[in-house]
């Protein structure tokens, strides 16, 4: 992909250019009712890899995540400026239909939020509203594939009609991931997907993220630095609405350049 943003070089110099750039942000600022929440963030996120956003609470990492699928639109008083491109197409533009955008940018939230419907309907909902399946069989296939990719098929294949809310927390989160990948998005955003889960469920989700990396561009916000270290290839550190440092995960954790990053990952604040 042509890289015509000189600033990108600053942050992307560590990537080695192995993967094409999927998401390119330039000077993205977010205000909530006049209060600056995100300050001129520019970042290039590579495809088919996991990028972790870390930082103390209120640092703007979730805010930035929500810019990527325009979920900030649903928040009263939110104003997003700057340029945000996914595959070179501008996202932060009134002309872009958020419905179309969100069909290609899936999102997984902090707390598992399956619809209070059957497991099948949860996964089938996206394909149904986007008209991705032309027949019942095709829909069945999509649901099965998504559940398989999410590593949930073995556990729920015999009870697809049960309500999604009857599953355990970890299973619910994987169901939500299945729901997100059922419409075959290009980017999957995960906002602290394991913070409400126990270590075993967390391990399963992390394993799943690692597998999904083969096909998707995954961006994960996490409070757990171990998790960031385990699952991500690149890590971005946010602080007070600023993107402080962005680079390969090993570098960030072993050799941070900014003293704030150093302080945060060594647990001196945050």
């Amino acid at each position: 992909m042509p890289d015509n943003h000189p600033q990108a070089q600053i942050y992307d110099s560590h990537s080695g250019g192995e993967r094409p750039i999927k998401v390119a942000a330039r000077d993205v600022c977010v205000e909530y009712n006049g209060k600056q929440a995100l300050n001129h963030v520019s970042i290039d996120i590579p495809d088919r890899s996991v990028t972790a956003f870390i930082g103390p609470s209120g640092c703007g990492k979730s805010t930035f995540l929500r810019c990527l699928n325009r979920m900030n639109d649903t928040i009263e008083g939110a104003r997003v400026t700057g340029s945000l491109k996914i595959d070179g197409r501008e996202v932060n533009d009134r002309a872009v239909d958020p419905v179309v955008l969100r069909a290609s940018v899936g999102m997984v939230f902090q707390k598992p939020n399956p619809f209070p419907k059957s497991i099948y309907d949860n996964v089938a909902y996206g394909p149904r509203i986007h008209g991705l399946a032309l027949s019942k069989n095709a829909l069945d296939g999509i649901v099965e594939t998504a559940l398989r990719k999410a590593g949930l098929w073995e556990e729920v294949s015999d009870r697809l009609a049960d309500p999604g809310t009857s599953l355990s927390g970890g299973q619910q989160q994987r169901l939500v991931i299945a729901r997100a990948i059922a419409i075959n998005p290009e980017v999957i955003l995960m906002d602290e997907p394991c913070s409400a889960l126990d270590p075993i469920a967390t391990a399963k989700i992390e394993e799943l993220i690692d597998e999904l990396r083969e096909n998707y561009c995954i961006i994960i916000v996490t409070h757990s630095m171990q998790q960031a270290a385990r699952v991500s290839q690149k890590t971005a550190f946010f602080h007070m609405g600023n993107l402080v440092e962005f680079g390969p995960t090993e570098d960030i954790f072993t050799n941070p350049r900014d003293p704030r990053t150093q302080d945060y990952i060594t647990g001196r604040f945050g």
Partner: peptide, 15 residues
């Protein structure tokens, strides 16, 4: 109705 349900629906691209 919890906001998470709205977010879930919006996030999969529901209008």
């Amino acid at each position: 109705v919890p906001a998470s349900i709205r977010q879930a629906a919006l996030a999969v691209g529901a209008s």
